[in-house]
Design a binder for these strands. Structure first.
Lengths: 223, 223
DNA sequence: ATTGTTCCGAACCGTACGGTACGGTTCGGC
DNA sequence: GCCGAACCGTACCGTACGGTTCGGAACAAT
């Protein structure tokens, strides 16, 4: 029944009209400041210069609005082409560091934190699977990219492992640790922790000591 | 102006009377099912067979109630004596595994998840530092214990590291990974992930490969 | 018995929010 | 120039909740 993609002259998401996208952008910024309670239908209508009636017509009810916000934000993550070029060990290691740094940067971003807080707040209501939605649309894409990166490393004999999921899980843990949770709690980062590049470096170093092939380790230590 | 500890004939926490403890216990269970919105003053009064007036007299306002709930729950974590006995490598490794398993068990518990969700939900309101409170009263005690455990390992020449905080951070990341976040989001654990003992084993294995002394590694592989 | 304290239960108030209805306006198509 | 669709702004309704007040029961102390 949703009017999604009744048109093809898009140049837009095809799921949201430009006007709706503008309203959703406004909703996102309201959500960033003020959390869940910061986003009320009346407040959004005022801030976005639209009417509540339109909001309800477009999104059904408030849950539909929240769902649309998540979907909208998820649609903005770039697909991030595979980029399956063969690399030497040092180059591949740099790719890992880049991934780790970007992961930390994303997780520490304002909108990511706001949406995660929103989804966590809704977790007690099983009927509105916002958490699942967020995980599937946002987290999985990052995970898939990381896993592909690790698999490429295995194919090029830089890494060795049996279970790609387990390897990525370890990688994730070494990178993120408890930083994400503390940011979600509103805790400030320690002075040293703000340097995501350095954090990414040490995480990749530790990961290599666990998963690099002997051949790669030698090549790295010779460099 | 807070009415905390006007009495000294405790035999109880000295911060809460038995009646108040009963009400707070009830508040906790309301919070576990239903999240933040599940805990209303009227609902708590009904469930705990007390009057709203008493609630407001004891805790001031709703924020005071939430704060009391967190404090109350934190007061129930056992101090967990140091237990600084010297152990051989295998015994020490078992201690690490126990710590890891208990950490996962605690984080996956109902009340822990509910309180963390509550604190995260309040993170957008900087005036009510529930997140900070939760971190300081709950998380820090666990962290302190883990760090002490690692330092004991270093003193007994099982581990080697410079920065105990960094080492514990790595340990935490290897154990928890993204499990805590996914539980907070209401995501179900994968079949294999529910075996916290196995998860703890592999985490400790990985941690040992990063931080164990060569001497300990040999001793372990000989066993 | 009287007084005072504590606390329950219920009624009450003000506010904020989700959701709906309606009048007025803009704009594209015929 | 007219029509209809989309939309804005606002007023409105019902409800839920935080917080206050009050009457009265239970109980202890004198």
């Amino acid at each position: 029944m949703h009017r999604a993609a009744e048109q093809a002259d898009d140049s837009y998401d095809s799921t949201f009209t430009p006007r709706q996208a503008a309203v959703l952008t406004c909703a996102l910024s309201l959500l960033v400041e003020g959390g869940e309670k910061g986003l009320t239908t009346a407040g959004l209508a005022r801030a976005a210069n639209c009417s509540k009636e339109s909001i309800y017509k477009w999104f059904g009810d408030r849950d539909g609005l929240l769902e649309a916000v998540v979907t909208f934000q998820a649609s903005k993550v770039r697909p991030l082409g595979a980029d399956e070029a063969a690399l030497d060990v040092a180059g591949y290691r740099r790719r890992l560091v880049t991934f780790a740094r970007e992961l930390l940067t994303v997780l520490a971003g304002d909108v990511s934190l706001a949406l995660n807080r929103l989804a966590i707040g809704q977790a007690s209501r099983p009927e509105s699977p916002l958490g699942t939605l967020l995980v599937e649309r946002g987290k999985h894409s990052v995970t898939a990219r990381g896993r592909a990166l690790l698999l490429a490393g295995k194919r090029q004999r830089h890494l060795t492992f049996d279970d790609a999921n387990a390897a990525y899980s370890t990688f994730y843990g070494l990178i993120v640790r408890d930083i994400h949770l503390r940011l979600l709690l509103g805790d400030a980062l320690e002075p040293g922790e703000e340097d995501f590049s350095a954090q990414a470096e040490t995480a990749v170093n530790q990961f290599c000591r666990l998963y690099c092939t002997e051949r790669s380790l030698e090549a790295l230590s010779n460099a």
